[in-house]
């Protein structure tokens, strides 16, 4: 199995960015979030990452 073009680099950069958002945004922008705002932020970020990963694994991995 190999990765399509520069897909691996893009995925690694994106994963670091997502992890950074996961840690930084709640402690800067959403520190005093009310109701389900922070819950929604983390849920949407994780859901987006799940979708990105599912798509990447389908598209970015090239089977031999």
């Amino acid at each position: 199995m190999r990765f399509r073009g520069r897909a691996l680099k893009a995925y690694v950069v994106a994963s670091l960015a997502v992890l950074a958002l996961h840690y930084i945004v709640p402690y800067t922008v959403l520190h005093r979030a009310e109701g389900f705002t922070l819950y929604a932020f983390w849920s949407i970020l994780a859901a987006a990452w799940v979708v990105a990963t599912v798509v990447f694994v389908s598209w970015g991995w090239l089977e031999r």
């Binding site: 690694v12 994963s15 996961h22 922070l38 983390w42 994780a46």
Partner: peptide, 24 residues
């Protein structure tokens, strides 16, 4: 509170990245 969700989702984000990059 909601921090427990962030704690558990941090695991998920990292695991998906590690699996996707290294598992093949």
């Amino acid at each position: 509170g909601v921090g427990a969700l962030g704690f558990e989702l941090a695991y998920l984000l990292a695991t998906l990245a590690l699996l996707t990059v290294l598992a093949p």
